[in-house]
């Protein structure tokens, strides 16, 4: 494929062209200025896909589950995209993205698109451009977009704010407690999955989780009560039930009208994040000039970080 400007890629992506979609995803990730108008155009075509965040601690069987869930979605005739997010190296910024491994069984089906992204250490957790990647898939006609994250903590909370439905995966035998509590992600789940339920100790994990939910430790958002779905990759059980539960959640959000509030919250967060990013980029652009000067003042303690930032913003206004 020869070089194509982003605006020329948009009609192809809207028609479902794999290569055009893939190129736009790369430009979403790099934050390319050339692609800005193209993403504005794509955004007008979004709003149809159901966005599902899936998270869980390493070893919870999450990748296997995502692969099976994608297969179940395909079996029902819907198109599915997966954004699989892995951490970047804090040293080089590079990353090894291994999550395609489990996707082997899905190979060759044009109704499944898997894209790996690195966290890139971006402020706020989610991979830079991950939500624009979701826009690309949404606009290109994928019915369901699964965002899969590894790790623990901030990333997971960010997913909950970016997804319509959030699934948290736990597994028996990974430790004494429910790992989701440790990770601080119990509260964000709309659906809990307990994987590896062929194991003898799975019942205890399920019981612990249900008790926790009953005690109200995981305060539900709105009228939906978080549900627990047991799965077993070995016995090939529970995946269809999980998909049904995700669909039920979507319907419940629509019926209660809460979907609007969720979408508004997602929009607000994206707006603020975009604002932060724009400011940050403009601050950093003159890294060796103005920024370095302010940093020197900070080092002498003659200026505080907050005052320095206020000064920079005021100057941006003057130069605008």
């Amino acid at each position: 494929m020869v070089y194509l400007a982003s605006s020329d890629l948009v009609p192809k992506a809207l028609a479902g062209d794999t290569r055009a979609i893939a190129r736009l995803l790369t430009r979403a990730e790099s934050g390319s200025a050339e692609a800005r108008p193209a993403f504005d155009e794509l955004f007008r075509h979004t709003g149809r896909a159901h966005i599902v965040g899936i998270t869980g601690v390493p070893g919870s069987g999450k990748s296997t589950l995502v692969a099976r869930l994608a297969a179940a979605i395909r079996a029902g005739g819907r198109k599915v995209a997966i954004v699989a997010i892995d951490p970047s190296s804090p040293f080089s910024g590079g990353a090894i993205l291994g999550d395609r491994i489990r996707m082997g069984e899905l190979g060759g089906d044009p109704g499944v698109f898997v894209r790996s992204m690195a966290t890139r250490g971006s402020m706020g957790g989610l991979a830079r451009g991950a939500l624009e990647a979701v826009d690309v898939f949404d606009a290109a006609g994928y019915d369901i977009v699964l965002i899969e994250t590894v790790g623990v903590g901030q990333d997971e909370v960010d997913i909950a704010r970016a997804a319509h439905t959030t699934v948290v995966v736990s597994a028996p035998g990974l430790g004494d407690d429910i790992q989701a509590i440790k990770a601080g992600i119990l509260e964000i789940a709309d659906v809990h999955v307990v994987s590896k339920c062929d194991r003898a100790d799975a019942d205890k994990t399920i019981a612990d989780l249900k008790n926790m939910l009953m005690l109200g430790l995981a305060s539900a958002r709105g009228t939906w009560r978080p549900q627990v779905v047991p799965t077993s990759a070995v016995r090939d059980e529970g995946v269809q039930e999980l998909l049904t539960m995700i669909d039920r959640h979507r319907e419940a959000l629509a019926a209660s009208g809460e979907i609007d509030a969720r979408c508004a919250a997602i929009a607000e967060r994206r707006l603020l994040a975009a604002g932060e990013e724009i400011l940050r980029d403009r601050f950093v652009r003159d890294r060796h000039g103005r920024l370095a000067g302010l940093l020197a003042q900070l080092a002498r303690r003659s200026l505080s970080p907050h005052s320095a930032a206020t000064l920079l913003i005021a100057e941006l206004g003057e130069n605008a």
Binding site: S63, I96, G98, R102, G104, V234
Partner: peptide, 10 residues
Amino acid sequence: WGTYRERPIF
């Protein structure tokens, strides 16, 4: 029995 697929480490 199904097949084995490894979770690779680096």
